[in-house]
Amino acid sequence: MVNNTLSGTRWKLVKRHWQLYLLIALPILWLIIFCYVPMYGVQLAFKKYSISKGIFESPWIGFRYFEILFTTPSGLMVITNTLILSFYSLIAGFPLPIILAIALNETRNRLVRKSIQMITYAPYFISTVVLVGLMFQVLDPRLGIFNRIFELLGGKPINFMGDPNLFSSVYVWSGIWQGMGYSAVIYLAALAAVSPELQEAARIDGCTRFQRIWHVDLPGILPTIITLLVLNFGFVMSVGFEKVYLMQNPLNLQSSEIIATYVYKVGLINADFAFSTAIGLFNSVVNVILLLTANQIARRTSDSGLW
């Protein structure tokens, strides 16, 4: 009986607010077509695809593609390269925006603070194509300004874009160059929200600047730090396609081929649809697991998960 009346009121609410369903229809249709239909197509990862038969009729072959991915040298190479790039980015890139935000927060001169924030934020708006084009110009072994300064200081010119050992460093540090100011914005906002009473109390108690930052500011922004760390861990396996693909050349391919570019080449260049789908699926599944795990950990340790 209780259930009945409950569903009765729900039904009444649906009828009263039918116009909301009218509004949501179009975006939901979009979600179905562009997100959920492709998810249905993921079964391709377990099939021997033939164009004449289509996705549905093609015969199943189980986990064959995943075996190939984990046993061939190229499969293992792309997984390793992806992990190297993302962990290097995380370790080198995570602390720097926090330091920048603290430095900006400690700068009393408004003009200096605004200008430096402007400058460091600007590269975020440069497109990936222009960024990599700029890197090719600036890092050129003969004419690039970077090597010319380096030579002036007594060094030998370095072929940054052609050396497989340098690829990850060039990728990561150019990423920091572009994204540091952008990432610092969140920390700056968190720092602005740290209670002024606590700051004042610390000052009255005779804390040095360092002690104040260490004992008041940092704990104040810790939830933000942990949330972002979690987010970053969740995306460890999703190194983006665009920048790596542009930086690739035959010379650095052994360290620059990552999952995203491999999926593209296997799928659209070699037209091996099924294998490409399988690699993509492997990547997505790992992403889901990482994100869910990281979120759990954050919730347990600091009560600041993503959901």
């Binding site: 729900r10 609410l13 649906v14 607010h17 909301l20 369903y21 949501i24 939901i28 979600l31 077509i33 562009f34 997100c35 239909v37 492709p38 998810m39 249905y40 197509g41 993921v42 391709l44 996705i55 999926v263 593209y264 799928g267 659209l268 649809f273 490409s276 789908t277 993509g280 699926l281 990547n283 997505s284 599944v285 992403n287 889901v288 994100l291 869910l292 959901w307």
Partner: peptide, 28 residues
Amino acid sequence: RFVGRGFFTWMLVFTMLFSGGLIPTYMV
């Protein structure tokens, strides 16, 4: 008071977690 809010929200959140990937999307 929008009935189905939870369902539609999860439908959206799920697309953040998981995607069909390059080839299935390309085929669509």
